[in-house]
Design a protein around this nucleic acid. Structure first.
Lengths: 342, 342
DNA sequence: TTTGAAAATGATTACGTATTCATGACAATA
DNA sequence: TATTGTCATGAATACGTAATCATTTTCAAA
């Protein structure tokens, strides 16, 4: 077999040693140019950069992190990346963190066991911090990370004992305002299609919603379990509407459920909002599509991410920084899925 | 300030040396237990595992990768993670690769410059391979990676000179079949809402579509540019339908465009499929939602990812493995957005 | 010209692991 | 018994960098 000179052959990975040799300086000086960039004469710097370019030299991040103890890597743990809300979350986190030089190790899984083992591996990579958006994992995982002194920020949820910093929307208050709004609009028979019952978001949203109805002595509330997917919303609405034909409004645990609910209602032959009002939660992009025009609660996503990033970076840099819990408000976005029944 | 014993203090990161000291063995033996797992007596293994558990020891992946020259990290470069098609792509890639022990470094950006600089950083992390699903970056980025001997697999696109392995759907053939189908159904006036005109997917889909119409001497084809978003589909359809009221079918560059097209058409007051037929491409989950019931082309996503993963791992392990281009078929999924006009 | 502080540089070491090499223990074989 | 061969083990080394420390150079002020 002959060597084909036209084929770009696989180059050795050159090191700062190699560069130093060519530039006629010590490895130390090469390192200074690529890392601190301090105290190097212009003359040598040029020589070094020329030599580096010649060899296509690039520093080795692993060797570097070994000694600096900074990996510039952050883990992000998700469930349901297919939910558009989380796609957006991922995108924004990536924007913000990459702008600050961090890299994202992405973890997503339906399967809890796989996730646990992956988290262990994440530890071995010495990520500097972890963002957790997964309800089912928050508690055990965050403890595991804390044991190794790794910063954890929970996003869109919190744990009961507040062991980690967390950023989320005030779901309780939001649900109260939504309930009040629906009552004002003259609705009489309420339904709530929930997410998984063990998540803080579901608990708080239900609590707020229920509280307002209780205050007003309204008993007519049906709760239907869902799991934050279109299909679960679709099934829930089918179930609800066949069982109780009086329901005139449905509050949904999130937007994607709401879309499923709307499609189910329409399939049955009822109209939105003429026959039934629907309210969602999240304000994902699809909720403003003309086919749905969903009235929903907007979470201040960008601000929430910004806040989470600030918290994270602060805690990374000052290991004894206090844990913080940030709760944001958001607001109702009125479109065309709710109608006054007075 | 006194030390609070209830507070779990930040532990030092223990090393294999520390474990060795406690277990009364050499560092080498500890390493053998956690890496190769070979040739260690049961007695010492137990001692070592006990010591490791006591210290919460975990190996350091960076130190390890420095010497093994395996990082077990793979980069995935995307644009538009908000497009549900790519959310799904990301999810499936993560499933498959994490099952094989790889970790995913996620890169997504609207901004090309940021992406370029991130790619440079990716190199410094010595990812073993990179999956590129970004049309605008494929060529320059893949060359950059190849220069360092890093495996590149393009997904859902290919470069003209076929410098990298690639997996994609036979867009040309698919578009031909879609065109033939629409012609068979008796349509007379055609429109195509494209993606960005410099992407291989757009080019091939348009080519196939046009070719069939040309063959049948059909001249009535309007091409409207889009960019693979809902909004661009919406605008395109508004434009199309006001300019040319005869159009009786629209082939869309992807599903998300098609959904926008459908909503625009309905907003105008026309019905689908009674007045206008619409066909999409990708078969994302939303296309089967009752509100849309979109007839579309299904890309065999799981198989495509499987294939890409196989290619990647093969090329990683055998550096001189031949480059490969895999083209898959897919099939038409008929729902309720196309109607016979005979 | 001398002095002295600041800047530039290189030798050396540490980061935490896997691997290589040499040695010793021990069982199996002739 | 002598001889192989296998297994278990530890000492030493390499991976590629940043940081520390000591030394040399530079250059302006006296």
């Amino acid at each position: 077999m002959t060597i084909d000179p036209t084929k770009t052959d696989l180059k050795k990975n050159y090191t700062s040693q190699d560069v130093a040799a060519i530039a006629g300086v010590s490895q130390s000086t090469v390192s200074r140019v690529f890392a601190g960039n301090t105290n190097v004469s212009e003359k040598k710097r040029k020589k070094i950069l020329a030599a580096a370019a010649k060899l296509d030299y690039k520093p080795n991040a692993h060797a570097r992190s070994l000694i600096t103890r900074k990996t510039m890597m952050i883990g992000i743990v998700m469930r349901n990346i297919r939910n558009p809300f989380y796609s957006a979350v991922l995108e924004i986190f990536h924007n913000r963190l990459s702008a600050r030089g961090y890299h994202l190790i992405f973890i997503n899984s339906e399967n809890e066991e796989i996730q646990e083992s992956e988290i262990t591996q994440l530890l071995e990579y010495n990520v500097e911090g972890v963002i957790i958006t997964d309800a089912l994992l928050s508690s055990s995982a965050s403890q595991k990370f804390k044991r190794y002194g790794i910063t954890v920020v929970l996003f869109n949820r919190y744990t009961e004992h507040l062991e980690s910093s967390a950023v989320f929307c005030d779901n309780y208050l939001a649900a109260k305002q939504i309930a009040a709004y629906l009552v004002e609009m003259g609705h009489k028979s309420f339904a709530f299609v929930s997410g998984p019952s063990d998540t803080s978001t579901t608990i708080d949203r239900l609590k707020g919603f229920k509280e307002v109805l209780d205050d007003r002595k309204i008993k007519d509330l049906t709760i239907e379990p869902g799991n934050y997917t279109f299909e679960s919303g679709y099934r829930a609405a089918q179930e609800l509407m066949t069982r109780n034909k009086n329901i005139d409004c449905i509050f949904c645990g999130n937007d994607i459920i709401a879309l499923g609910v709307m499609d189910a209602i329409r399939t049955i032959g009822l109209r939105i909002p003429e026959d039934v009002s629907v309210v969602g939660f999240d304000n994902i992009r699809m909720s403003e599509w003309p086919s749905y025009a969903l009235t929903t609660w907007e979470q201040p996503l960008e601000e929430m991410v910004d806040s989470a990033v600030e918290l994270m970076i602060k805690e990374i840099n000052e290991k004894d920084a206090p844990m913080q819990v940030v709760m944001m408000k958001g607001h109702l976005v009125v479109r065309n899925s709710v109608r006054s029944r007075k």
